[in-house]
Amino acid sequence: MLSKRSVIVALGLAALAIPFGGAHAQTALDDVLKAKTVRIGVPTDYPPYGFVGPDLKPMGLDIDVAGLIGTRLGVKVELVPVVSANRIPYLQTRKVDLIVSTLGRNEERAKIIDFSHAYAPFYQGVFALKTTEIKTFADLAGKTVAVARGAMEDEMLAQVAPPTTIVKRFEDQAATTAAFASGQTQVIATSVSNIGVLSQKNPGLGVEYKLLLRDSPCFVGIAKGEDALRGKVNAIILAAKADGTLEKLSQKWLKRGAGDLPL
C-alpha cells in the first residue's frame, strides 16, 4: 500500500501548500539573489540558438544570452534543457526562473507568463525542396508539413494554411528537422536559421525558402507578476543593446545583424 499512502501524503501536502501559493509572487528576484543562482531554461535541439557541442554542453545564442543575464545579475547560471512543449510548464511551476528559449510573444502566452524586451531576431518560414511548387499558402493544400509541437510556427501555420494541409507534429525540433530531411514530409515550418544550418550540412538536399510565416523575435519568458525580476532583465537587455553586445551575439551566431528589436 506504499503507493496509496504516498498518494495521500502528496494530496495532503498539496492541500497544505495551496494557501502558500500566493507567497511565491514577487519573490523570484530575491530568491535568485539569495541562492546566487539563476535557473534558465534553454533549448538544446535548435541550432544556432541552442544546441550541444561534442561534450554535450549547450551552446548557442540563447545560451550566451543566459550567460549574459547571469553575469550582469552577478549570480551563477544553471542551464535547464527545455523543449517547446515543456518550457512554459517549467516556468509556471517555478522550476526555472527564466526561459531564454527562442520564445516568441503572442496573446495566449502573455496571459500566463510575462515577457522581457526582445533580445534577438527570429524569422519563421515555410521551406521545401526546390522541386516542390509552393507560391502561396494555398499551395500547401494536400501537402505534408513537419512542425514542432507547441512551437510558434505550429500555431501560425494553423491560421494561414488551408484546412487540407496535413500537419505532422513532432516532439522537438530535432525530430521535426529529421522528418523533413529524410523525406517523410514534403514541407517544413521552422526558423530560417535552422534551415540555414540544414542546407549548409546537406548542400545536395536542395532546400529553399518558400514563404515567410512570421517575423517573431525572441523574448525572455518570466513567471507572471514577477515585475522586479522582469525589470532587472529588461535593464540588462537594454544595456546589452546599447553597448552592442546583442548585435555582436547576433552576428556571431546568426551571421546577421540584430535589426530593430521591439520592446
Binding site: F51, A181, S182, K201
Partner: peptide
C-alpha cells in the same frame, strides 16, 4: 519530458547538430 537527458533525448540533441539523423 521532465529533463532527463537519456539515450533518446541525447540522440535527438546530437541528430540536430550533426544533421545525420539516420
Amino acid at each position: 519530458v521532465i529533463g532527463f537527458v537519456e539515450l533518446t533525448k541525447a540522440g535527438g540533441m546530437i541528430a540536430n547538430v550533426t544533421y545525420e539523423p539516420l
